[in-house]
Amino acid sequence: MSHCLVIDDSKLIRTIHCSMLTQLGLTVSEAENGEEALSNCTARMPDLVLVDWNMPVMDGFTFLKALRAMPAGKTPKVVLCTIESDLEHISQALAEGADEYIMKPFDVEILATKLMAAGIALSPRARRPDPLADGR
C-alpha cells in the first residue's frame, strides 16, 4: 500500500483529500505547510505527495525544490494541487520535478486518473468504482 503525504494549509481541504486518498486504497499523513512536510519526509519518505501550491510558511513550489534536493527526495511522485490555470506556473512546477498537477476542486475520479498518470498503482477496486455499489 502506498503512503501519501497531503500538504495544504486548510484543515478542511486536507481532510477531504485524505478521505479521497483513503478511498483509493492509500495510507495518508498530512502537513499544513511545506516546512512541516519536509520534517515529515525526513522521518518517513512518502511514496506520493499531494501538495498545494499556495501556502504560508513554505509554499508548494519551494517545498518541491527542497524535497527534490533531499536524499531519496527524487523518489516520491509529486502531484501539485492548484487553482492556478496559468500554463507558466504549471510548466515551472513540472520543470522543477512535479510529476503531475491537478486543478482544484477535483473529485475522487479525477484524482484517481491523475494518480495513475503519475504512476501510482491503485487497488483494482479503487480504480473502477462499482456503479451498482450504491444500490441502484
Results as ranks from 00 to 15, higher is better:
Ser91His: 13
Ile83Phe: 12
Ala118Gln: 10
Ser123Asn: 05
Gln92Met: 15
Ala117Pro: 03
Ala98Thr: 07
Val79Phe: 05
Gly119Pro: 01
Ile90Leu: 14
Ser85Asn: 15
Ala118Lys: 03
Glu109Thr: 05
Leu94Cys: 05
Ser91Phe: 07
Ala121Trp: 05
Val108Gly: 04
Arg125Asn: 02
Pro76Arg: 01
Ser85Arg: 15
Ala126Asp: 06
Glu109Trp: 06
Gly73His: 04
Ala118Val: 12
Glu84Gly: 12
Pro124Arg: 13
Leu80Ala: 09
Ala117Asn: 15
Gly119Asp: 07
Val78Met: 09
Thr82Asp: 00
Ser91Ala: 15
Arg127Asp: 08
Val108Trp: 04
Leu94Glu: 01
Ala126Glu: 12
Thr113Lys: 15
Lys104Asn: 11
Glu100Cys: 12
Pro131Lys: 05
Gly97Glu: 10
Arg128Asp: 12
Leu111Asp: 08
Leu87Ser: 14
Val78Glu: 06
Asp99Ser: 14
Leu122Glu: 02
Gln92Cys: 10
Glu100Gly: 07
Ile120Val: 15
Glu100Pro: 02
Ala72Trp: 04
Glu96Asp: 14
Arg125Cys: 00
Gly97Leu: 09
Val108His: 01
Ala95Cys: 07
Lys77Gly: 03
Ala93Cys: 11
Cys81Asp: 07
Glu96Ala: 15
Leu94Lys: 13
Thr113Asn: 14
Gly119Ala: 06
Met103Leu: 15
Arg125Glu: 14
Ser123Pro: 02
Glu109Ala: 10
Leu80Asn: 03
Asp107Thr: 03
Leu132Gly: 02
Ile90Asn: 13
Glu84Lys: 04
Lys74Leu: 00
Met103Glu: 04
Gly119Phe: 09
Val79Glu: 10
Ala95Phe: 07
Ile110Asn: 13
Arg127Thr: 14
Met116Ser: 08
Ile110Trp: 11
Pro129Arg: 04
Arg125Lys: 07
Glu96Ser: 15
Arg128Phe: 12
Ser85Phe: 07
Phe106Ile: 04
Asp99Glu: 10
Leu87Thr: 13
Lys74Val: 00
Ala112Leu: 00
Val78Gly: 05
Tyr101Gln: 06
Lys77Cys: 06
Thr75Tyr: 05
Ile120Ala: 08
Ile120Pro: 01
Lys74Phe: 04
Asp107Met: 03
Pro129Leu: 07
Val78Phe: 04
Leu115Cys: 10
Lys104Val: 14
Ile110Arg: 14
Pro131Gln: 06
Glu96Gly: 09
Thr75Asn: 03
Thr82Gly: 08
Lys104Pro: 11
Leu80Lys: 05
Gln92Val: 05
Leu87Gly: 11
Leu94Val: 01
Glu100Val: 08
Leu132Cys: 03
Arg128Tyr: 12
Glu84Val: 00
Asp107Cys: 11
Lys74Asp: 09
Leu94Phe: 11
Thr75Ser: 01
Val78Ser: 03
Glu88Gly: 11
Ala72Phe: 04
Ala118Pro: 00
Met116Phe: 00
Ala117Lys: 14
